[in-house]
Simulated scan of single mutants.
Amino acid sequence: MLDIHTCVQLISSDPQTANHARDALCNAGISCQLVNSPRDCQHAPACRWLQPLTNELQTRLILNDAINTLEKTRHAFKSRDLADLRRRLQALMETL
């Protein structure tokens, strides 16, 4: 169920179909934003799907994934070495 304050993003490469869908949503009282191209999206400047990843962002994503994996598996693998590795990776993330 949608909250009445939620703005739905309607993404379509077919403008005619998108306009019909937008009209139907608006008639139902649902706020929506029609996105035909990346420049139409209000979040495009910050969207990692539309922008090539910088080396720094790619490194952060990989480090974050490794830290999360170590955190999720810490009870399955009770290892002081893995715990130390997780802490070192977290410290590295803080310096980036």
Rank of each mutant, 00 (worst) to 15 (best):
N64Y: 03
Q16S: 12
L34Q: 10
L2C: 08
P15R: 09
I11G: 02
C7N: 14
I30H: 08
C26D: 02
N19D: 14
D14L: 05
Q58L: 07
H5R: 15
W49D: 10
R88H: 06
P15L: 09
L96I: 13
P45G: 11
R88W: 01
C47N: 05
N27R: 11
R80I: 14
W49H: 09
L57P: 00
Q42F: 09
D23Y: 01
I4T: 08
P45A: 14
D65K: 04
H20D: 11
G29V: 03
C32P: 00
D3L: 13
P15H: 06
H5Y: 11
R39W: 10
S37R: 13
V35W: 02
Q51D: 03
L70K: 13
L61K: 03
C47H: 08
R87H: 09
D23F: 00
R80D: 14
C7R: 15
Q90L: 13
Q58D: 04
D3K: 15
T73V: 02
N36M: 13
E71I: 02
L63T: 01
N55A: 14
I67V: 15
S37A: 14
S79I: 06
P15I: 05
C7P: 07
L85S: 07
L89M: 15
S31A: 10
L50R: 10
D40P: 06
S37P: 00
T73N: 12
P38G: 02
Q16I: 13
D81F: 09
L61P: 00
D84E: 12
L82A: 14
F77T: 04
L63E: 06
L61Q: 09
T54A: 05
L10Y: 11
L85T: 14
R22W: 04
M93T: 15
A66K: 12
I11T: 07
Q16T: 11
D3S: 11
V35G: 05
T73W: 03
H20T: 10
I67E: 08
L34T: 07
P45Q: 14
L53M: 08
T54V: 05
N64T: 09
T73Q: 10
H43T: 04
T17C: 04
R60A: 02
A91V: 02
A66M: 14
L50D: 04
T73I: 03
W49T: 12
A83T: 14
A21N: 09
L70H: 11
E71M: 05
L50T: 08
L63R: 02
A76R: 07
A76I: 06
A66S: 07
A21W: 11
A83I: 07
H75M: 12
Q90K: 15
L63D: 05
I30N: 02
F77L: 13
H43I: 08
A76Q: 09
P52K: 06
L2E: 02
L96A: 07
V8F: 05
L70P: 13
R22L: 13
F77Q: 10
P38Q: 08
A24S: 11
T69K: 10
R80A: 11
L89F: 10
E56K: 12
K78P: 00
Q16C: 09
L89Y: 07
Q90V: 09
N36H: 08
K78D: 10
N55W: 01
L85D: 01
D3I: 01
H75T: 11
I30S: 01
A83Y: 06
S12E: 12
T69G: 05
A28Q: 05
F77P: 00
Q90G: 06
